[in-house]
Structures are given as C-alpha cells and as structure tokens.
Amino acid sequence: MSSPSITHLLPPTPVQPAASARLLTPTTQPIPLLPSHLAKRYSYFHTLLVVIYYYFRASALVADPYTAMFLDLGFVSLAQGVFCAVCLPSAGSWVSGTAGGKINESTGAVAPLKTFKGAKTGGNLSGSGSSSLRKKIAPPSAVKGGSTKGEGAGGSWKGRVTPALFSLILTLTLPPLPLTLIALVLGAPLYPTSLLPCTLLLATHVALLGFLPIFYTHGVSSSAWRDVAAAWLPFDESGVWAGTVGALVGGWIGAVPMALDWDREWQKWPCTVLWGVVLGWAVGRLVTNVARLGIGRRINLSEKEEEPGAGTEVLAAGPVKTLSETKKSK
C-alpha cells in the first residue's frame, strides 16, 4: 500500500515541528586563532596588508582588469597562505567539528562558544600549555595526531606549509567555478564573452580570500563543507568565516555603483565588485577578529514564528462573537 507518492498523501501531523526542529544540526566548531602572540598580531596585520595591497593595485586594475587580477593572484595566494600557516590550525590539528553531536540551532550558538572560550583562555593564560588544554576538551577520537604536534601552537612549520600548499591547490581548482556561476546568475555579463575570464578571475580572488582558510582548517571534511554550503559555519575569532561572508556580501554591494551613469572608467566590470569583496572581507574580519563581536553565532535563516495562540485571540466585536462560540463548540 505504501507507494512513494502516497507518502505525500498523509495528512499532516497536527503539530508541525517548530522551525528549529525542521533543520539539520550544524557540526562545525568556530576556528580558533593559534594561541601565540604572533598569530594574533599577524592576523591583524594580514587584514591591513591585503587591503593596502588592493588599494595600491586599484589603478592597475582599472587600466587592465584581466592582467592586473591575474598578477594579483600570486600575491593574494601568498598572503593568504602565510596567514593560514601563521595564524590558523590546519585541518586535523584541532577539533573542527562535533562528530554528530546534538547541537541544534538554538543551543548551537552556546556550546561551541564554550569550547572555543576554553581554548582561548588557555592560550592566554599559559602560552604553550594550550595544546594540552585543548586536548582535554576534545573528544579523544578527534585529536588524532594532535598530541604529537606538541610544541608551538600549530605544529612544525613544515607541517603547516604542506597543508597550506594543498589547500591552495584545492582553492584554485574547486570554488572558482561555482563562484563564477553565482556571479553569472546574478547578472555578470555573458556578452561580450571576453569578460568571462575576468569573471573567472574575480571568482578566484573570492575563493582565495574567502575559502582558502576554510580548506586549510577544515580540509575536505564533507560535513564541514555541507555546513559551508548552507552558510552555517559559526563566526570565529580568527575572522575566517566573517571574511568569507563579508567577501560575498561585499561583492553583492559592490555591484551597486556599476549601474550609475557617471561614465567613469572604474565602473567597468569587475572593478567595483572586487573592491566590494575586499572591503567586505576586511570589515568582516575587523568585526570578528579585531572587535570580537558575534563570535560563535551562526547565520539564522529561519523565519520568525508567532507564539502559538497569538493567532487565535479574538476580539469582542461584530461577527467575532459567533466565531468564539463556534470555536468553543468545535
């Protein structure tokens, strides 16, 4: 009797699950900053460096977007790679996610925050002792290899450069194409086709700024990337996720001045969008990495719900009387 189409026919259960219960549970933890002072300082410096670099390349970008963006790839890859190596724990060296732990939307904001705070205070209190502290918090299954990389904060330099290189390769190959597609569906020009390489380069820049650190810290864990696709990572003190969100939102806003009829050279595709990406990225990083606001929170995409009962309250006026009567009798 139970054919697939008939499952649809079931009358809905009287009480539908609340919005939070309709959702999956995000499993990723906020990405910590490595507990060394260097990491903290360099993460500030990095934000500044990248913004200044783009600022000085602005005229070159306007003059010849394709060449400028292509040449910039080198510097941005290097800067982001160095940032990852210096400031972030590489994938596998930290507890990046709860292995199927029950963190739902409402409590999710709190639980990872605790883990994260523990790590952070540990880092502040006893510099090198942090790894042991983190070990305590982490479930044993997730710490594989963590104990061997004891000294420093993120393991040996060699152990950082190799993942940085790997994640660079992944960043340059995987995200640019989907990001290009997103740009195109949002209205990036298809004609003339000579602009398509520019769009691809723009997407590569977004990938380097927004996704390289995620590859570095989360590797290719499918549950982590499911969270990334659902924009469900928690904001973190290292400013990685805020940078990603900021870059995308900034690019979105950056498209705004293009339509104006000022006839300026810089209004051409994709200059303003790239600047929007960089500024949004920087703002996102400033808010979480420097000002430390909203850390541990996730983007909430659920619609607001009225309290049950709010819709049934009635007024004593007009045909409402009959309404309440019938309601009682029902």
Binding site: A21, R22, L23, L24, I182, V185, L186, G187, R226, A229, A230, A231, W232, W252, A255, A259, L260, D261, L301
Partner: peptide, 28 residues
C-alpha cells in the same frame, strides 16, 4: 537605477534564490 531596473530585479530575485538554496540545504 530607474533605467536599469530590470537588471536590479534580476539581481534581487537571484539573491533570493541563493538564500533559499542555502536555507534548503539546512532542512532536516
């Protein structure tokens, strides 16, 4: 922006589509 309203609407509609895509990926 009055002249290019059609492009702006494309932009907004696609933005909604992307957000709904993200939201759909979260459904249990």
């Amino acid at each position: 922006y009055t002249i290019h309203e059609d492009t702006i609407l494309l932009f907004f509609l696609t933005t909604f589509g992307i957000l709904s895509l993200i939201s759909s990926l979260r459904q249990a």
